[in-house]
Structures are given as C-alpha cells and as structure tokens.
Design a protein around this nucleic acid. Structure first.
Lengths: 221, 221
DNA sequence: CAGGCGCTGTCAGCGATTTGTCAGCTTGAT
DNA sequence: ATCAAGCTGACAAATCGCTGACAGCGCCTG
C-alpha cells in the first residue's frame, strides 16, 4: 500500500508519517502544493491524505485539478474543526472522507483502512493475477496455490510487475527498480531474469510487448 | 516526442538518455552551453531537460535567453539538492519544473510525462480523436474501444500526431521526431509507416494534405 | 581452508518481429 | 493529359527478445 501525505507542517507530517509507516504503509510526503500536484498527477497511490491550507497552493484547488484530470484515487481530507464550508466544498471537489483536526491517530488509521478497502480490489495484502498469487506481507509467491521459492531478485521483479498490473513496464524502468542507478549490467541480464521467472511461474504469467516492455495481467493485444 | 538533454557529464548524459529513449522519446544531447543555446533556439523540442552548472555557460542564463527570445517550450531543470536559491531564481527565469539531484529515473520520467502532457494542453492521459483513443500512460491505442497492437515506431507516430491534433505536420518534422538526427532513411520509409498504421487504425484516422503533411483530427479544407 | 551450492551476469546463437527499400500503381493538381 | 506526390504490397535487412550454457561471486558447511 502506497500513500501520499500532503502536509506542510513538518512536525505533523513526521508524526503522521511515522504512524502510517508503523501500520505497514509505504508513505511519501509532499510539503507543498506544487510537489503534491505532480506526485498526485503522475504517480499511483492507494490513498492520498490531504491537509487543507497549504502554502503554495490551496488544497481544495489541488483536489479539483486531480479530479479534472481523471485521477480518481481515494482522498482523505484533513480539515480544521467545524469548518463546515470546507466540507461542503470538498464534497463537490471529490473528496472521499474528512477528518477534523485535531484527530486521534487511531481514527486516522481506521478511516484510511476503510477507504483503501472500499476503493480498489487489491485492498488485501495479496495480489492475485491468473494462477499467480503474491503475498506481499510474507514475500511469498504461489502458482495455483503451490508455493514457489524465488530468489530475491526474482521476487522483486514479480512484485513490481504485480503492483503495476495491467500496465506495460519498460525495461529501463525495471532496470532502475532492480539495480538502482547502476547501469553496468548488460540489457540481457533482465531478459535472463524474466526467462528464469517464467520457468517458475509458467510461461504465460509474464507477457512481453515487443519494443515496449513487460506486464502482468490483462493487456489485450 | 523529441527531447533535448543539456548535460555536461558524459556518463550521466548517457544514462539519462538511455532511460528516456527506452521510454519512447527521441533524445538529442548537448554537452555544453553553446550547443544547447543554439539547438534550443533554433529547433523545436517537446521538452528540454536542463542541468545547471554547465562549463561554458550558466544554465540559468541559457534559460533566460531562450525565454527572452520568445521560446516557450517546457523546461525541466535539474538542480543540486536543497539549493533553494536556484529554485527561486529559476522560477523567475521561466523553468516549468525542478528535480533535485540525485533523482530516481522513474521520477524523471513521471515529471517529463506530466510536463509534456500539460504543455500540449491535453490534461488527461488519454487522447481521443474520432474512433481512435491513445492512452499515453499505457502506451496503447484503441479503435472503437478495441485495443490495437502497434509497433514502437507506429506508436510514436500516432502519439505525435495525436499530441498535435488538428494541425498539419510536415513529413520533415515527423522524420526529425521519429529518427532524430539520423537522416539515412529513405523518405518513403515514413509513407510505408503511415500505410501500415492506416491499416490498423482505419484509413480515415490519419489524413493527408498533399504537399504539406499528415494530420489527425479536424482541419479546415 | 577447501569444496559445494545457489544466485546472477555474460555470451552466443536462434527465431520472430519490425522496419527500410524497391518497384509499380493510384491520385490529385495544373 | 501530364507529372509529381503519395500509396501499397513484397521482400530483405536489421533489430529485438528468448534460451541454454557457462562462469564468477558470495556464502555456507564440513
């Protein structure tokens, strides 16, 4: 689960981020509206927690612009207590839930869980694509219920493809994810890795779009 | 999509260029400010990625001179992390976005996508023209909702025409965008490519204005 | 410390796909 | 009607991705 926290107060951001991280989420933070806009517009998050009253851009405007661009990820808005006008405006802007400040962390977690569960199908800790099941918590992968022993690199590859299911992932992006900035490897290393994975998961588990990249899931030709 | 990368460190330039090329862009590189200024002033790019701290000319000065000359293409500036002064100065100079070094290639790609999308005026990640729909994120094209399997070059061509809808694009411009500086191809290569595309997208998807070029969308006769 | 083992990068060759080129044909403008 | 621009189908060359084999490396065990 990947969350974006939009919060300008560094201390609050650190606290909330720590709580969420402790609950098992991957948290990224944006401290001003410009960063938030780019991240929310270009990255895929399972939930965005948006504090209103940002310095460089109005949080509500931010939300409206995301929705106008067809971004429909769940957004939990943090408002000042009792500002009813904001709540009404937020409903139009497309927020999914509200939490008045100050709030209990417990309540934040509960609402975050509910929103994530409600939103996409992959609210669980496991990703299932065809015969392949990825248990992200236990870092285990099964095929037709039979657990497979994957090497670390292999697991990182399925995991990445699984989290980006139904999307073509370019080889360069995979290389960056697997190897970081180190580009010393031959391009063939990735191909060899994919080949080994297919041997374990079945040839159809990972698809190739020649000239574009690899994918898992449905991608009609 | 045609990009200009202004970067003096040859190793970084090679890496970044490889990533961008892998993502489907045509990348040209300038390793010093003089070349960069000339290219940026005379050629048309969909995005310029500008590293500050060039040897023969200050990157910021470069940007200011482009803008002073009425060049308004999107510019993504690479800054040293935390150099806030540079960011502020850059805003005045006319940069569109910033990325502190070191950065993840994935983030660079995301921001590049966002800038290009924004500049062309299509806020959404999909472009719809007649029966044809281009999903720039998934790099997929559908006709009447039916996904088509396009080759990389074919995709780059529809993508370019789609981003410049309702405008007649001269063959020379298309060649530059598809092949970069490489002038080795026969002029007929492009025509053959268009023919193959029309077979997949339908003959009416791409129009020809004899003597001027190709277009998608509505164009006054 | 030696040997074995698992992981991963590299190499070379194959097969399929993509793409450039050619030759002949069609179309549109004058 | 004529000519050039553009279209098309066929073919060949270049490219891309897959695979099996092998080698280097780190790690564990005896």
């Amino acid at each position: 689960m990947r969350l974006l926290l939009v919060e300008d107060d560094a201390r609050i951001a650190a606290d909330v981020s720590a709580v969420l991280t402790g609950a098992g989420y991957t948290v990224e933070t944006a401290s001003d509206g410009k960063d938030a806009w780019f991240l929310g517009d270009t990255e895929d998050y399972d939930l965005i927690i948006l504090d209103l009253g940002l310095p460089s851009m109005d949080g509500m405007a931010l939300l409206k612009r995301w929705r106008a661009n067809g971004r429909h990820m769940p957004v939990l808005v943090l408002t000042a207590r009792g500002s009813w006008a904001e709540r009404v405006e937020g409903i139009d802007a497309g927020a999914d839930d509200y939490l008045p400040k100050p709030f209990q962390f417990e309540e934040l977690l509960a609402r975050a869980r509910a929103l994530i569960r409600r939103s996409v199908g992959h609210g669980a800790a496991t990703i299932a694509i065809g015969a392949v099941t990825i248990d992200t918590r236990a870092m285990r992968v099964s095929v037709n219920g039979v657990p497979q022993s994957l090497t670390p690199l292999e697991y990182r590859l399925v995991s990445y493809l699984g989290h980006h299911r139904d999307r073509i992932v370019p080889p360069t992006e995979l290389q960056e994810h697997l190897y970081g900035d180190d580009f010393s490897r031959d391009a063939n290393a990735l191909e060899a890795l994919v080949a080994r994975l297919r041997k374990k998961l079945g040839a159809v588990a990972i698809g190739t779009r020649r000239g574009f990249g690899y994918y898992m899931g449905e991608t009609a030709p």
